[in-house]
Amino acid sequence: MVEDVINGLENMRLMTEEEEVITILDEGRKEEIEGCALSLIGKFLTCKPFNKRAAHNTLRRAWGLEKDIQIVEVGSNLFQFKFSREFDLDRVLRGGPWSFDNQVLLLRRWHKGMTATNVKFESVTLWVQIWGAPFDMSSPKVASEIGRRLGEVVDVEKRRSLESQNLFMRVKVALPLSKPLRRGGFIGGSDG
């Protein structure tokens, strides 16, 4: 019996012809590359089923792109958003976070060689609110420093005016998906 398993495994080896790499020049896939160049790959951060048609329609309306975007399902809960203009793609990518039915949409830019099995989502970009900071620490520089401790800082909300005090500060951070969300923390100056 063990011998049959070993013989079966030996028969599973690739033949020399199967190991050969078939090289396809960019010229042979130029049209597909151009069709993907203005694409984002997205995935909803959920395991539960959801209404894909409603999600697509909601995103189209939220992005103001009812007709100027093509949404293709390329894997299980994996979508390719094809834009007609670079401006719209950048606006959507920078304008998030986006969500549907309380599930965040993870987005990343398409690149050559990306497949449904090798696309990786390693972070989620969210606005983090910082409440209760001392008045002398309510500044974009402090918000940025706090954001750096959480992940990669993407943007910092500027203070509306020097005369008005904000109730909280906001920093947009790419938070690593591999770490749990921090619920809070303490900040202190050099004097405590």
Rank of each mutant, 00 (worst) to 15 (best):
F168Y: 15
F135K: 03
S144H: 10
R160L: 13
F135L: 10
L89G: 00
L107D: 04
R109I: 13
K120C: 00
T115L: 09
E152Q: 15
Q129R: 14
K141Q: 09
R149T: 15
E145P: 00
K172C: 09
V92Q: 04
L126V: 11
L89M: 15
V171T: 08
R91S: 11
V153I: 11
G113Q: 06
W110C: 07
V128G: 01
V171E: 03
S161T: 15
F168I: 01
W110D: 06
L89S: 00
E86A: 05
S138Q: 13
V142A: 13
V92S: 07
P97R: 07
N118K: 04
V128T: 08
Q103D: 14
D101C: 04
R109F: 08
L93Q: 08
D90V: 15
S164K: 15
R170C: 07
M137G: 04
M137C: 11
V92G: 09
V156M: 05
F121H: 01
E163Y: 04
K172V: 03
T125S: 14
A116S: 15
P140Q: 12
R94C: 01
D88W: 04
N118G: 02
N118R: 05
H111D: 12
V119F: 13
R159M: 07
Q129C: 04
L177A: 07
M114Q: 12
K172F: 00
V128M: 07
V171M: 03
